[in-house]
């Protein structure tokens, strides 16, 4: 006769030590490990005739907690030594910071080895394709990042490449990625590519003449970048603290830091 008391020694084949009766409190527990996290942040890149501006905020979050108010999301790629002296390529990575820095480390290694082997710096277009391959090489355990790569092309024009997390990429005039990209991207469409803007007095309907997008001057682009971020900071909790900007020209990379709201 089976005992009605839980935890009582069981009849038949049993062990000498007490066995807890299977009940709701001791059902099999499942533990799982999720290898990714989202550290928020937003990045932005705009290319001009002879420059490319890369920008990203420096807030690093997990959930509602702020890990740090200054973790750079912009990295110099190539150049000399750990300081990347003389580098002309900038990589921005948003999403999972650990994957971001691992990716940057790999790409930086590759670009530096390229110069060591060939005696000349890697072109941005080559670096862009290599980055795509790097991302795709982890197709089934991806780097959880949205990457943007900026530099100057072989003709000295601003070059900007954007990526999805498995390596699909495209050269563009401007791109925003990360947490507040949905806020910033339409603003860029409107203010950089003049989407939905028409020449005043050019008629109605099909007669309307669209404002043609032409590369903007540096001062204008810098102002747009700052406006885009101050706007995003107002409405997105994962964006704020600081704005890191890198301006790539033929003379090198100039780095700027601007404070953003810390609330």
């Amino acid at each position: 006769m089976a005992s009605i008391l839980p935890g009582a020694p069981q009849e038949g084949i049993g062990y000498s030590f007490s066995q807890a009766a299977p009940n709701a409190a001791s059902e099999p527990r499942q533990h799982s490990f999720y290898p990714y996290s989202d550290n928020g942040g937003t990045s932005l890149g705009i290319s001009g005739t002879d420059f490319t501006i890369m920008a990203a905020d420096t807030r690093n979050v997990s959930g509602y907690s702020i890990n740090t108010r200054y973790s750079p999301r912009l990295y110099l790629i190539g150049g000399e030594g750990p300081e990347n002296k003389g580098a002309r390529i900038v990589l921005s990575v948003v999403g999972f910071t650990a994957d971001g820095s691992a990716l940057k480390e790999r790409l930086d290694n590759i670009v530096k080895m390229y110069k060591y082997h060939h005696g000349k710096p890697m072109s941005v277009s080559a670096c862009a394709q290599r980055l795509s391959h790097l991302l795709y090489s982890k197709r089934f355990f991806p780097f959880y990042v949205s990457a943007i790569l900026g530099g100057l092309d072989e003709e000295g024009k601003g070059a900007l490449y954007s990526y999805d997390y498995v390596g699909s990429y495209e050269r563009e005039q401007c791109r925003s990625a990360g947490a507040a990209s949905s806020l910033i991207m339409p603003f860029l469409d409107n203010q950089v590519n003049f989407k939905n803007q028409y020449q005043p007095g050019s008629g109605t309907g099909h007669n309307l003449q669209a404002v043609v997008a032409e590369p903007l001057p540096r001062e204008r682009v810098t102002q747009l970048v700052r406006d885009a971020f101050t706007s995003a900071v107002e409405r997105h909790i994962e964006v704020g603290d600081g704005l890191q900007m890198m301006i790539i020209t033929k003379d090198g990379v100039q780095e700027k830091y601007v404070e953003l709201k810390k609330d």
Binding site: A228, S231, R235
Partner: peptide
Amino acid sequence: SDQLFGMCEGL
């Protein structure tokens, strides 16, 4: 609404 927040905050 996300896109509108970005646009309105900017313009």
